[in-house]
Computed example of a mutant assay.
Amino acid sequence: MQHALELRDLTKLYGTRTALDAVSLTVPPGSVVGVIGPNGAGKTTTMRLILGLIRPSGGSATVLGADPWRAGPDLRRRIGYLPGELRLDSRSTGADLLEHFGRISGPVDGRFRSELVERLGLDPSRRVGTLSKGNKQKLGLVQALMHRPELLVLDEPTSGLDPLVQREFLALVREAKAGGQAVFLSSHVISEVQHGADHVAVLREGHLVRSARVADLRDEAPRSVRLEMDHPLTPAQARALDLAGLEILTMHPAPGTPDGRVVVEGRLSGSPAALIPLVAELAPQDVVIEEPDLEQAVLGLYAQPVPVPAGARRGR
C-alpha cells in the first residue's frame, strides 16, 4: 500500500539554525496523524515542506506518490490545506471565496459544500472583513474539505472555534478517515489529538522525540490512584504496591471518618494489570483509578534533553 505521505530524514536549515532535523514519518490512507509540539517545534515548517512551499535542505517528502517541490498544480488539487495564519480577501463574501477556491481545487460537489457550511454554522453571505476569527476559521475549513481531497493538511484547525464546532470538526475528521482520506494535523491542544488521531508525533525544537499510536502513548501515561482503607498499609503491603508500579505519594486519615480509615494516594505508570489483584487482596472500602493523562505524558516528552542537531553534526 502506498502511503499518502512519507517523510524520510526530512531536514530544513535556515543558515546555521536547524528548523527540522531528520524527521521520518508516514501517513497511510484512511488514517489521522496528529503532530504536537510547542511554538517553534517545527510543525508549520513540516507542513510547508509537505506542500512544496519551501525546499528541504536534506531528506525527502513523498506526497501521494510525488515530490511536492517538483510537482505542479495537479498534486496540490489532491490536497486540502488550512494554514495556521489564514489570510483572506476582506472585501469578498464567503460564498465568493468558496466559488473561487472551488475553481482552483477542482470539481466540488455543491451539495457537500452546502452541508459543510450548515454543519459548521457558517454564514457565507457575509463579507470576510466582518467575520470573527472563529467564522474565518470555519470558512478555511470548508475550503480545505469541500473537494474531498486525498490528503488533508490542517495547521491548528480548531483555533478560534467554540466547543460545539470543535466537536463537529472532529466528526468531519472521522468521516474523512472512514472515506479513505489521510489527515495530517497539528495542534497545541493535546485533547484534540487524543480524540481525533490514530497516531501522534511529538516535535520539539525540530526533533521528532516520539512517534506512537495514541493508544500506546495513553497506556504509558500516568494514572492517579486513590484507595480508601480501613487501616494503614503495612510496610510489606506498601512494598508490594510499589513493585506493582504504584508510587505512593501520600497516606493520611480519611476526612470525616472517625473509625480510623486512611486514604492512600499514588501515581501509576503503565498498565494497572499487576496492581488490581493486589488491591483486591487489600479489600479497600473505595478505589479510584483515573484515566491515563496523555497531557502529562506529552509534557514529559517536552522535558527530555534535545539532541545535537544532525545539521550541526554534519558541519552544515
Rank of each mutant, 00 (worst) to 15 (best):
D9M: 06
L10Q: 04
T11A: 07
L13F: 04
G15S: 09
T16Q: 15
R17M: 14
T18H: 03
A19G: 08
T26I: 00
V32F: 09
V33K: 00
N39T: 01
N39P: 08
A41K: 00
G42R: 00
G42M: 03
T46W: 00
L51N: 00
G52D: 01
G52Y: 01
L53W: 06
G59R: 03
A61C: 09
T62G: 00
V63D: 03
G65F: 03
A66L: 11
D67K: 04
R70D: 06
L75H: 04
R76L: 05
R78C: 04
Y81V: 07
L82Y: 02
E85H: 11
D89F: 15
S90H: 14
L97Y: 07
L97D: 08
S105F: 14
G106T: 02
S114V: 11
E118Y: 12
L120M: 09
P124H: 04
S125E: 14
R126F: 05
G129M: 05
S132D: 07
G134A: 10
G140P: 06
L145F: 15
E150C: 05
L152D: 01
L154C: 02
E156W: 00
P157D: 02
S159C: 01
D162W: 07
P163V: 01
P163F: 10
Q166M: 12
E168G: 04
L172W: 08
V173H: 09
A178T: 05
L185N: 01
S187M: 05
H188F: 10
V189T: 13
I190C: 02
I190Q: 01
S191T: 12
H195V: 15
H195A: 15
V200T: 05
E205T: 13
H207I: 02
L208P: 01
L208V: 07
L208Y: 06
V209Q: 02
R210T: 07
R210W: 11
R213K: 12
R223K: 09
R223V: 11
V225S: 09
R226L: 14
L227W: 06
E228W: 14
Q237G: 00
A238D: 13
R239C: 10
A240D: 15
A240Y: 08
D242M: 13
D242W: 11
L243D: 15
L246S: 07
E247S: 13
L249M: 14
T250V: 11
H252G: 14
P255R: 10
G256A: 10
G256K: 04
G256F: 05
V262C: 10
V263I: 12
V264N: 03
G266Q: 03
R267L: 13
R267W: 02
G270W: 03
S271Y: 02
L278D: 00
V279S: 08
E281R: 11
E281L: 14
E290R: 11
D293W: 06
L294A: 08
A297E: 14
L301H: 07
Y302R: 06
A303M: 07
P305T: 07
P307M: 06
P309L: 09
P309W: 10
A310P: 12
G311R: 03
R314W: 11
G315Q: 05
R316H: 14
